[in-house]
Simulated scan of single mutants.
Amino acid sequence: MLGYYILEVAKLDVEVAGVLDKAPLTVRRPPPKNLSKRKIGKIANSNWSVAYNSKEGLENVKRIFFLLDKHLYRTPVLEHILHIINKLPSNTSEDKTCVNDMLRWYIEFRKRILAIIPKVFDRQTSEVKLEE
């Protein structure tokens, strides 16, 4: 039963899917039209999103992270989101707490699932590249 549960999680989670050589079935939400005006690290609690920069080659590209799409981001990106929201003083402590609690919970959940995979399946999680 645990194996079937992990396979269901792999349909949504990019890191778990990567370890199991599966493709996640979901896609990210489209960026809002006002993305260029959004401040990096500022939490928009209307839709629980955060603008962040992502390196593509030599350039930084502004992207948007939606909390509901956390399963589509690799752990280093989630940790980067945590870092930028916590260092921005204009985010309220309540907003930071909400995002921190959800992301830290999800990161721990994911780590536990990844730790179980070698025991349930014939896979090694340490070989997986963790990049966006």
Rank of each mutant, 00 (worst) to 15 (best):
K11N: 13
L35K: 08
H71L: 04
K22N: 01
K11H: 05
V77A: 13
H80F: 12
V77Y: 10
V128S: 00
K55I: 14
P32Q: 03
A10N: 02
F121S: 11
I6R: 02
K70F: 13
I117N: 10
S126Q: 10
A115N: 12
S90C: 12
R104A: 11
R29A: 03
S46W: 08
V16K: 06
L130H: 05
E15L: 06
K37Q: 06
F109P: 02
E8R: 12
S126N: 09
M1C: 15
L88E: 05
C98L: 14
V120A: 01
V128W: 10
N45V: 03
V27W: 09
G57T: 02
F121I: 09
Y52P: 01
S36R: 06
T92S: 12
S90Q: 15
F65T: 05
K11V: 06
L12E: 05
P32N: 02
E59M: 13
I40G: 00
G57P: 03
I6G: 01
I64C: 08
A51L: 01
D21K: 13
N45T: 09
K42D: 00
F109G: 07
V27M: 13
N47W: 04
D95K: 11
S49M: 00
S90A: 11
M102I: 13
I84F: 02
L25R: 15
R29E: 06
H83S: 14
E8A: 10
A10D: 05
E8L: 02
E131S: 15
P30A: 14
T97F: 15
I81K: 01
I84H: 04
